[in-house]
Design a protein around this nucleic acid. Structure first.
Lengths: 263, 263
DNA sequence: CGTACTATTGAGCGCTCTCAAAACCAGTGG
DNA sequence: CCACTGGTTTTGAGAGCGCTCAATAGTACG
């Protein structure tokens, strides 16, 4: 059975009223279940998993899902909208750790210490589901395939961070922004949205912070990409007019390191 | 009951013969069990966990634990020596993802795809235990606290990568090397080894690759740190003579971002 | 004792940051 | 309607950090 296509996601101007029905439906389509369904999770088990999900009322720009140091109780799944996670240094400096789009899970890094090690802030009017981790753990102890999916989920997060590590360690500013845009594009596509036409819910400053670049550099790169015909940009509205070129830019291997060998 | 102190670890000149007895003993002290013991894993469960651990014969410099693309079968725990993990681009370029010391687990990023997404190469004569993941999963389905520890282990890895992300995104070359040295120092201390006097099993090239720096920069930084009295360095032998200064360097917040605020 | 590799050191350049200012936008109140 | 204010984004000019290129020194190994 196909889940109904989601109708309201990030790519919408703010202020749109999100119906509770659409949230309820969307909740059934969360990452966890998407992973479980094709892998032999029995329908009744899906029900059990579904039953522990809490649907919270819509959150608004600036609301916190949790803050660093909070006791860890639940994982969160973005249903519509977008959320950023970030670490704070005592002096008030921020490091953006990620932008989370519909279907993505937040809070996996809090399990070990049983406390949140970063904060999560809503970027635009968003719907978020809560998965009480204690109950999820109990459930995963009853359902083998759920346990397996949990392992996979955590593992996937590790592999993903590894890619980011590579990005920040090796790539140029240009490559970083291209990778960022491509990542957004692919994630939108996965959720049935346009991979070439979307709105950014985060500021240039936040993008720069995330990518380890200065705001000015991000701005200049948008301008350059625009001039090179890679995309059209109007404030937060982005249209990728040459996706292939962006993909080529990302997959291109930096020239260095090609000659040298390592022991 | 205390586990016997490990006698042979990385900080030893190569060529030393590692007795099988010491490996067997060391194996009981693996991260997983260290995590489980204080948290109420019953002795008989420890036995069961211990029973699935495979002790392989010592590996030598250049040996692979696995290569990118290999079918995922087992996690690996370094018992003595050290292992590096790295991703390979088709053209032969490498990105070092981590250096793994005794007690540390390798392969967590392979669960999702059921295939290894990076390669693991032994840096010096090392002993490594193998944890067949299928059996571990079965066992964790029987032992609730083991399942919980597995979740914690995976979560910890995510939190750790997050820190690396911050390192590569925000910090200067100087900070990166200082953080690297401090990390090694703390990990050695945790295993009962000198936190201020150790040997590096990896080359400058590999350090640079890991930290996103050129070899030359790493070399220059070692020289500078030496001149500033932070450490003594003789080839691969490092003595941290001013650990406090290094810690101060790492915890120091970059000046930028202190004035500006983010929305 | 050469050969190959690793590490160090120096010189110069380029990318990205910093600093500074202007343009643009949204909301508020006169 | 417009001025005012606080914010974000853009654009420009200059400087510095870390990279590249290149040469030398030191080390391991056959």
């Amino acid at each position: 059975m196909n889940t109904p296509a989601l109708t309201t996601l990030t790519a919408l101007p703010e202020g749109k009223i999100i119906s509770f029905e659409s949230i309820r439906v969307a909740c059934r389509n969360c990452t966890l279940m998407t992973l479980c369904l094709p892998l032999g999770l029995a329908p009744e088990d899906v029900e059990r998993l579904d039953s522990i999900v809490r649907r919270n009322r819509p959150l608004h720009r600036g609301d916190y899902l949790f803050q660093s140091g909070d006791r860890f109780r639940s994982l969160f799944v973005v249903k519509t909208g977008s959320v950023k996670t970030f670490a704070q240094s005592p002096e008030g400096g921020e490091q953006v750790l990620g932008f989370h789009l519909p279907g993505e899970i937040i809070g996996l890094d809090a399990i070990e210490k049983d406390a949140h090690v970063c904060s999560a802030k809503v970027l635009e009017t968003s719907a978020v589901c809560e998965l009480p981790f204690g109950r999820l753990e109990e459930l995963s102890f009853t359902i083998p395939s759920l346990q397996h999916q949990m392992y996979r989920l955590l593992s996937k997060e590790i592999a993903h961070e590894t890619e980011m590590l590579l990005l920040l360690g090796k790539k140029s500013a240009e490559d970083r922004l291209a990778t960022f845009l491509l990542s957004l594009s692919q994630r939108f596509r996965k959720r049935g949205l346009s991979p070439t036409d979307f709105y950014l819910s985060m500021s240039r400053h936040e993008i720069g912070n995330y990518l380890g670049l200065a705001v000015e550099t991000v701005s200049r790169l948008f301008t350059r990409f625009h001039d090179e015909g890679l995309l059209k940009v109007d404030r937060k509205h982005i249209q990728l007019t040459n996706l292939d070129a962006i993909e080529a830019m990302v997959s291109r291997v930096p020239v260095e390191e090609c000659r040298r060998r390592m022991s």
